[in-house]
Amino acid sequence: MRAAPLLLALALVGAAPVASAVAGGPPHANTQTGPADDDLSPAERMAERFPQKVRVGDLVGLPLLDFDDRTLGYVREVARTPEGGVVLVVPVGGWFGHGGRPVAVPLETVAILGRQIALLDIPRAELPQRATWVPKDGAPIAGDEIIRIAITRR
């Protein structure tokens, strides 16, 4: 019976690093950017967020959330800009995330968060100030194409 307290102590000691990392350890590279990340380009920030392959059709319809988990809109389409960048077209300013003015959100500024997309590098207040997306600004990407998107957690 003396082995039980020793095993319990070893289990607690082994869990201590995990608990400290969860409860206040250093910020994870996939979370919202901080002051140390100000000198990185959006593409460099995205590369640090472990981009994963995703089918474009699986992104359409997902909600775009701000850092307070408020829905800003739902992805209407994924498009490629003339410069070669990828943007999510999201209606902003509508009623409960629907029916607003479409704006382009660069893929480098968001990350997948479960079955949602988290807006990481653009403040919520700045989104309605972005230019209205018009179809001539880029070409829609087919739903069966594969692109890379960063991942995040909260």
Score class of each variant (00 low, 15 high):
I147Y: 04
D68N: 14
E48K: 14
W133Q: 02
V105A: 05
L113F: 09
I149L: 10
V22D: 11
Q129C: 03
L65Q: 08
M1V: 09
S41W: 07
V89T: 04
P91L: 06
I151N: 09
V78R: 07
P135N: 05
L10C: 15
L65P: 03
A43W: 05
F96K: 11
P5L: 07
P106E: 03
T152A: 10
G99R: 01
H28E: 10
A79P: 03
D69E: 11
Q129E: 14
G94E: 07
I112E: 14
L113E: 13
L62G: 07
A111S: 13
A139T: 15
A104V: 07
V90K: 07
V56L: 06
G61R: 01
D69C: 02
L120G: 00
I147D: 00
Y74I: 01
D58Y: 05
A29V: 02
G138D: 07
T152R: 01
V110W: 04
P135F: 05
V54I: 15
T109P: 02
A43Y: 01
R153C: 10
L6K: 11
D68E: 14
A16M: 11
F50T: 13
A15L: 14
A131E: 15
T132S: 09
I122N: 06
Q52C: 01
R55W: 04
T109N: 14
V110D: 04
E83V: 08
G24C: 03
L10G: 15
G138Y: 07
E44I: 03
A150I: 00
A3I: 12
R49C: 00
S20P: 00
P123L: 10
A47L: 09
D37L: 08
P128R: 02
V110R: 00
A19R: 10
D69P: 04
D66P: 04
L88N: 01
A16E: 11
V110Q: 01
G84P: 09
P106H: 08
D68A: 13
Q116S: 12
Q52W: 00
G99Q: 01
A19L: 14
G99H: 01
L12E: 10
